[in-house]
Design a protein around this nucleic acid. Structure first.
Length: 97
DNA sequence: CGTGTGACTGGGC
DNA sequence: GGCCCAGCCACAC
């Protein structure tokens, strides 16, 4: 696993229950790579972490993940509107807390 | 070394 | 909301 990959997973681990971050936000926070590199990390190592707390800029995930993700979102009381995460309420900025 | 690909994004219509 | 497109960059052929 690359150092970049470990830093991505570290950020994911800091996201609280019921909140989410976007691919682009993680890339900005790390100041390296980009959304696609973050996506590549999630594709290979996502299953090892709370992957459903990382979503696209519009609150969705690729189709094959939506079903499982929605179960987790419901269990965590993550703000969801019409099947996708309501980013205006659920987005968590790691710099804020 | 060129090309295609993908858990992406922002802009334009 | 949708579709298209350029930009993105590591990786596999």
């Amino acid at each position: 696993m690359s150092d970049f990959g470990e830093r991505v997973l570290d950020v994911v681990e800091t996201v609280p229950r019921g909140r989410v971050v976007t691919y682009g936000l993680i890339a900005d926070l790390l100041g390296e790579g980009g959304p696609r590199q973050v996506g590549r990390v999630m594709a290979t190592d996502g299953p090892a972490v709370t992957w459903w707390r990382v979503v696209r800029a519009n609150g969705t995930l690729p189709p094959h993940l939506m079903t499982d993700a929605q179960l987790h979102w419901r269990e965590e009381r993550t703000p969801v509107v019409r099947g996708h995460v309501d980013l205006r309420r659920a987005l968590w900025n790691p710099r804020d807390p």
